[in-house]
Simulated scan of single mutants.
Amino acid sequence: MYSYTLTFKEQIDKLTSVEQEISLQSPAQAGDFIILSDGSRHQVMFVTHRTHYSSLYLDKGVRAPQDQA
């Protein structure tokens, strides 16, 4: 399991998204897409690695359309 802190291109996204961390089954790479629990879809712009943690830098994101019943 790989754990990352999330950093968004726009600060407003931090106020609307629940996650500040995410765990993935495989290592993230630039160009990957991440879907958060609020339904927003974000592309990974780049990844930084530190000694004790890694960060994903995400674009502003697109909210996934909701199914209409």
Rank of each mutant, 00 (worst) to 15 (best):
D59C: 08
F33V: 07
R63K: 15
T16L: 11
Q66D: 12
V62W: 13
I12A: 14
K9D: 08
Q20C: 01
S3D: 05
I22F: 07
R41V: 15
F46M: 07
Y57M: 12
L56Q: 06
M1F: 07
H42C: 09
E21I: 02
I22Q: 07
Q68N: 03
Y4V: 01
V47I: 15
L24I: 02
D59F: 01
S23Y: 01
R41W: 11
L36H: 12
F33N: 03
V47C: 09
D13F: 04
S3L: 04
K14F: 13
V18L: 09
S54A: 14
S17Y: 09
Q68M: 01
M45K: 04
L6K: 07
V62Q: 14
R41L: 15
G31C: 03
H49W: 01
R63N: 14
L36W: 12
D59P: 02
R41M: 14
D67W: 01
Q29W: 04
I34E: 02
R50T: 07
S37K: 10
D59E: 09
T51Y: 03
S3V: 08
A28L: 13
T16A: 12
E19P: 00
A69P: 10
A69H: 06
Q11V: 08
I35W: 02
T5W: 04
E19K: 04
M1A: 10
V62D: 14
S23F: 03
T51S: 15
D13S: 10
Y57T: 09
A30Q: 15
D67F: 07
R63S: 12
Q66V: 11
M45F: 00
M45L: 10
I34Q: 08
V44N: 07
G61C: 15
F46S: 07
V18W: 02
Q66C: 06
Y4E: 05
S55L: 00
L56S: 08
S26E: 14
Q11S: 10
V18N: 06
S3H: 07
T7S: 15
L24S: 07
A28Q: 08
A69Q: 05
S37N: 10
Y53P: 04
H42S: 03
D32I: 10
P65M: 13
S26F: 10
A30D: 00
Y4A: 12
V62H: 13
A30P: 13
T48R: 14
G31K: 01
M45V: 05
A69C: 00
Y53Q: 14
L56K: 09
Q43H: 05
G39K: 09
Q25T: 01
D38K: 09
I22D: 07
H49G: 07
S3M: 05
Q29V: 06
S26R: 11
L6N: 06
Q20V: 00
K9H: 05
R63T: 10
A28G: 10
T5V: 07
H49Y: 11
E10W: 00
D32Q: 13
Q20P: 00
R50F: 10
Q66L: 13
V18K: 04
Y53W: 02
V44P: 06
Y4N: 08
K14L: 12
Q25E: 04
L58S: 10
S55R: 03
E10Y: 03
V47T: 12
L56F: 02
V47Y: 04
V47E: 06
S54H: 01
H42Q: 01
Y2A: 09
R50K: 11
E21K: 07
S40G: 12
R63D: 09
T16M: 06
